[in-house]
Computed example of a mutant assay.
Amino acid sequence: MEDDQEASTSAVNISRFDVSKHLDKEEVIADYINAALEEGDSDLLMVAIVDVAKARAGDDSVAIGMDRCQSYQSPCSR
């Protein structure tokens, strides 16, 4: 029973998965965009495009505008 108590009180560190860190080759990027296109979901495609832009920029600066656009539930007008 002590093992059960230890397991329930121990903290688990989980980090957020950032796909943009894995989009490091043109073939991988093409596969990722094609998979988003196959889903037929324009919101998913927009997220995939932002992920690619983040991967190419190397930081999160691209995502800031995306978050604002998503909060309004409408396409970003730039």
Results as ranks from 00 to 15, higher is better:
Val52Glu: 01
Asp18Ser: 11
Tyr32Asp: 01
Leu37Gly: 04
Asp3Lys: 09
Ser20Trp: 15
Gln5Leu: 13
Asp59Trp: 02
Cys69Ile: 05
Met46Ile: 05
Ala11Pro: 05
Tyr32Leu: 02
Val47Arg: 12
Gly40Glu: 01
Leu37Ala: 12
Glu26Leu: 08
Val50Glu: 03
Ile64Cys: 04
Asp3Met: 04
Ile29Thr: 07
Gln5Gly: 06
Ser15Val: 10
Glu38Phe: 03
Asp31Phe: 03
Gly40Thr: 03
Gly58Arg: 11
Ile33Phe: 03
Met46His: 09
Ile14Ala: 13
Cys76Tyr: 08
Pro75His: 10
Ile64Phe: 09
Glu38Gln: 11
Leu37Met: 11
Glu38Ile: 03
Asp43Pro: 02
Ala36Cys: 01
Val52Gln: 00
Asp67Gln: 08
Ala57Asp: 07
Asp60Arg: 00
Asp67Val: 04
Ser20Gly: 06
Asn34His: 07
Leu23Ile: 07
Glu2Arg: 11
Glu39Asp: 10
Met66Lys: 09
Ser71Gln: 12
Glu26Pro: 06
Leu37Asn: 13
Glu26Ile: 06
Thr9Lys: 14
Ala35Asp: 14
Gln73Cys: 11
Ser10Lys: 15
Glu26His: 04
Ala7Tyr: 13
Asp4Ala: 11
Ala57Leu: 09
Arg16Lys: 14
Cys76Lys: 14
Gln5Val: 12
Ala30Gly: 03
Met46Arg: 12
Glu26Arg: 07
Ser8Asp: 15
Gly58Thr: 07
Val28Ala: 07
Ile29Lys: 13
Val52Cys: 01
Val12His: 07
Met46Asp: 15
Cys76Asn: 09
Lys54Trp: 01
Ser15Lys: 14
Val52His: 00
Met1Arg: 05
Asp67Arg: 10
Arg16Asn: 08
Ala7Cys: 10
Lys25Ile: 02
Ala36Asp: 00
Ser10His: 13
Ile29His: 06
Val47Pro: 02
Tyr72Thr: 12
Ala36Glu: 00
Ala36Gln: 00
His22Ala: 08
Val12Gly: 07
Arg78Pro: 04
Lys21Ile: 01
Glu38Gly: 03
Cys76Thr: 04
Leu45Asp: 01
Ser74Ile: 13
Ser61Asp: 09
Glu27Asp: 15
Lys21Ser: 06
Asp4Cys: 08
Ala55Lys: 01
Ser10Pro: 04
Tyr32Ser: 01
Ser15Met: 11
Asp18Lys: 15
Asp31Lys: 06
Leu44Arg: 13
Val19Phe: 01
Ser42Val: 10
